[in-house]
Design a protein around this nucleic acid. Structure first.
Lengths: 334, 334
DNA sequence: ACCTTAAATGTAAGCGCTTTCATATGCAAT
DNA sequence: ATTGCATATGAAAGCGCTTACATTTAAGGT
């Protein structure tokens, strides 16, 4: 593989000049530039990015830590990040944290030891304090779908409360008034805020929040089926069910169908996230679109702007979810 | 950030010795080893992996090229590759080819210019010749789900014919004899081999392949719905439908349901791949499991063995798919 | 023609490691 | 003690670039 030295020799110039034509930031006369370019062409020269990194103290790589590679968000988020970064000639190093505190920390240390220019984290197990301390280090840290006040400039987050509001609001608009709610684990900020949105919509409609029609699930399918089972076993009266994510909505739909419900006429169901399979469910799931792909793109843009001095990028750190009306929810039949 | 030089100073030894205790391959006396380790500890020393790469001509990184990050296989494949490689201290650099020839080539060049120690490709647009030429270069090339005779030692592939056979066989076992088939684009080896398996199963059962009950789809949902529409419009008689992938099976299921079919009683449907949403469909989709996760792991192991001299790994280049019997196919009701 | 100044190019010192080769050390055998 | 040998350690070159600084070149003003 040709080196910069061979190029300089063939072109009859110094190493520095070759480096200059590669880095385009200092002026080189057109004549010598051409000589150098020709020599590169002739030798099939490709700069050694490792040597560049060492000399310039910039690896052109961004580390990404996600919970699970096969989780529903990861792929879309990654697609967003990768396309932005790749277009800028940067690359992405990926690792996983499996939602466990020590594995997340280990993954972060791994990325830092690889000398990533920045890291984008989608973590849940690690504490806010840890993140704050981490961000004092030399590697810039960005957070996806997690808001930490002290790090607010580095957070890309979703307005979960608005999402929760929209979900319940869509059901209210359909004339429902007896609405059950299956929440996610309340120590997770997302779950908490979605519930807040639900309560807000109810309050606005003059309906008081009924603790009996409230169940805390685990964000998995079983959480949804257990939740619905609970409401049914308690012989409660309700015509709609709002779930804090799509997995639980799917679990609830399965349970409902197995117990003779005709969806959506007997029960309207709404999810949250608009994961890939929402559109494959039967009936197709009405849900709140969580624009993770767009948020990934934005995280990448933020890195490009902050770390790689790509000045004129417009940054939006706060995303608004939208309603995806499909077939699992419908107007109340009196 | 501490350098090896500072460690050597604090420990009162030479650079070389510090390097030796890091690389564990040459003997260092226990006494000096301890001094060095203590010094590292005290300084919080982390080796600079970039400098290591430059000096050792080994980047400890493996490039991965996939068609789409949000495609159904990618996540599982990646999860397999990443977990294996990460455990060995290597990392993964990811990029996409979007199934377009020039983008795939560009992605490959990008990975090579990053000096990956090996690249794992999941490509479809690029030609066999290109791959053969590529593998003559200095970066070892591995192929996922693609078999090229000349590169057979570097291919991890699935027995698609067996899969096609199993799919149709399961339907035959249910007593069906009028079986429609929606194939994938026949220039794709996977699609071709799956069809071969289908024919083999028919032949074995003494049923002759009927070109009227055969349709070539596009591997997307629309291919499935169009295929089924075609069969119905032609007023053909069939009680089962085998599709060459799950997307088409899903499309066919939607079309069937919209046209009053009661699944699986009016029509048994089988897919192929067992993508993540197969289990979320209604009824849940009977399909052929494509063990992409395992194949990803194996690709990583192969790299570990070939490139990183990890001798005692057992390699299996050929994977066998298995039947996932679910609710979308059932015994024929006479 | 001569001096000044800006632009173009060259020189050489790193970046933080690995690794070859040379040297020092310790120990057993004489 | 002396030799020999294996083992432990050090010195220094080099991996392929970037970049501060020094030097050369060209152009403009008098």
């Amino acid at each position: 593989m040709a080196t910069i030295y061979q190029v300089s020799e063939l072109a009859g110039v110094s190493l520095a000049t070759v480096s200059r034509v590669m880095n385009k930031n200092t002026r080189v006369s057109d004549k010598t530039k051409k000589k150098v370019l020709d020599a590169m062409e002739q030798l099939g020269y490709k700069p050694n990015s490792i040597a560049q990194s060492l000399a310039s103290n910039c690896t052109n790589s961004v580390g990404i830590l996600v919970s699970e590679l096969h989780g529903p968000f990861f792929a879309q988020m990654m697609a967003g990040i990768e396309s932005e970064l790749r277009a800028a000639g940067k690359h992405v190093i990926i690792t996983t944290g499996h939602s466990e505190e020590d594995k997340e920390q280990e993954g972060i240390e791994f990325l830092i030891s690889r000398r990533c220019d920045a890291i984008i984290l989608h973590v849940e197990a690690v504490s806010d304090d840890y993140l704050i301390k981490l961000s004092k280090g030399s590697t810039p840290v960005y957070l996806m779908s997690r808001y930490v006040e002290q790090l607010k400039d580095n957070c890309i987050s979703l307005d979960n409360q608005l999402g929760g509001y929209l979900a319940t609001k869509s059901i209210l608009n359909h004339g429902h008034t007896q609405i059950a709610y299956i929440a996610g684990p309340q120590f997770k900020a997302d779950a908490f805020n979605r519930l807040e949105g639900h309560k807000q919509a109810l309050a606005e409609a003059g309906i008081k929040f009924d603790p009996a029609l409230f169940y805390i699930g685990d964000f998995n399918e079983t959480g949804g089926s257990k939740g619905l089972k609970h409401f049914i076993d308690e012989k409660l009266s309700f015509t709609a069910l709002v779930c804090a994510n799509d997995e639980m909505a799917s679990g609830a739909m399965k349970y409902a169908r197995e117990h003779g419900y005709n969806l959506p006429n007997d029960l309207s169901i709404v999810g949250f996230d608009n994961v890939i399979f929402a559109n494959y469910l039967y009936p197709t799931l009405t849900t709140i679109d969580n624009p993770v792909g767009k948020m990934g793109e934005m995280a990448a843009k933020l890195v490009l702007k902050d770390v790689y001095q790509n000045k004129n990028l417009v940054i939006n750190r706060f995303f608004e979810p939208t309603l995806m009306q499909r077939d699992s929810s419908a107007p109340l039949i009196k």
